[in-house]
Nucleic acid binder design. Sequence first.
DNA 1: TAGATTGTTAATCGATTAACAATC
DNA 2: TAGATTGTTAATCGATTAACAATC
Lengths: 236, 236
Amino acid sequence: MNDTEKFTGPISDKALERLAQYVHYLRRREAEGLEVISAVTIASDLGVYHTQVRKDLALTGLVGVPKVGHKVKDLIKAIEHFLNWDNVHDAFLVGVGNIGNALIKYRGFETSGIKIVAGFDVDKALIGKEINGIPIYHTDKLIDLANRLKIKIGIITTPAEHAQEVAEMMVEGGILAIWNFAPVVLKVPPDIIVQNVELYSSLAVLSQKLKSKLEADGDIPQINEEEQKEEEEKQK
Amino acid sequence: MNDTEKFTGPISDKALERLAQYVHYLRRREAEGLEVISAVTIASDLGVYHTQVRKDLALTGLVGVPKVGHKVKDLIKAIEHFLNWDNVHDAFLVGVGNIGNALIKYRGFETSGIKIVAGFDVDKALIGKEINGIPIYHTDKLIDLANRLKIKIGIITTPAEHAQEVAEMMVEGGILAIWNFAPVVLKVPPDIIVQNVELYSSLAVLSQKLKSKLEADGDIPQINEEEQKEEEEKQK
DNA sequence: TAGATTGTTAATCGATTAACAATC
DNA sequence: TAGATTGTTAATCGATTAACAATC
């Protein structure tokens, strides 16, 4: 009976995202030699509420010790287990362009549940080659290989216009979860897990906020009369 | 008086992220030859509510024509203007590893407000070289160059342990907005814009959902009694 | 005109934040 | 023991969803 997690509905994405943050933070603190930590400390270092940290940690079934806190090592273990990061899944990556290449070369995700075992592309110049020991096949082979190797995770790093067809091939190949870097809303069966990395959306937030900031600071020349009036209003 | 935007508080990140999605979707539809589109169509294609699309579009000051909809071209223009994507800012990137390299090579962000004009690293093997015509300097030069070129945007693609110091250098160099790919919560003055790309968080969501799914499907051998009982409960 | 579409206002929902009780 | 910490329950807030009114 090592599984004391009580049944709860699906966990919110936000909570899962924070848990990943906690792990990275805790690994760093552990490397510094810290052995015990309180939710209050985690919260203040990461800029969130301590009650939120506790709620998130509770999702993993963790129980802390009043007055003491949590053992850093146990926390890391428990979160990693909860996120399934102690269980590495093989993954296929389709689209060996700039980002695809970077993800294949980068081995850092292997401590986060994913190991890329093959790349796929339609570029003849790439097919048959290896990148860091990982073979690149023609995308034609995707469905068959995914089925045979029982691959569960697919990564899409193709140009936007090919993302949908690749997603469909992945589904046909029995892939259950797609990590999608293309700026496209994929249409897949409802039971397929899709996690989008929206770089352009992230950039949109950055860009628009910078614009607002520059305008507020008066750094932009073409300020119109209405805005100037508003400025004056504020100063009163 | 081309600026009919009324004053509203800061726009929510979610809304900005969706606006970026709309642009990409609309660009694709425009390429297909579509000239007019309704909020209802956008919504159903992207899987969101039409009232939400309208609210988001309203943020940009756009006004549609009842019974007709919006001109695709105008929509794109308005959203791009709102996101400040028609105004390209020069950016510095620090950390020319796998991801840094990919971002430097990839020119796609130049239609989304960002142009990387220099890379920085501490690796002697990289310094002095060019990647796609973009020079790589020693990180020592960052502060001075950022100040002199009045760079406003910094991109952090260093290992986690160096992200904080790089962020501090950026702030000292007068950089106002940081696009951070390191899994670290940066501590910077409150007026500095930080936008994190949380790849590990994204992976955490994927990983945990896949785990839940596999468990639900019974694909994992070690199913315990409690879970089996729950399964039986459901089937009634 | 009728109807498709727009835009806005109200209701619901979920996540965040705050307040409180429990414990080593 | 007193107090720091945990864990939980209640209040607030904001975003999503639904319902309605306006218009070419």
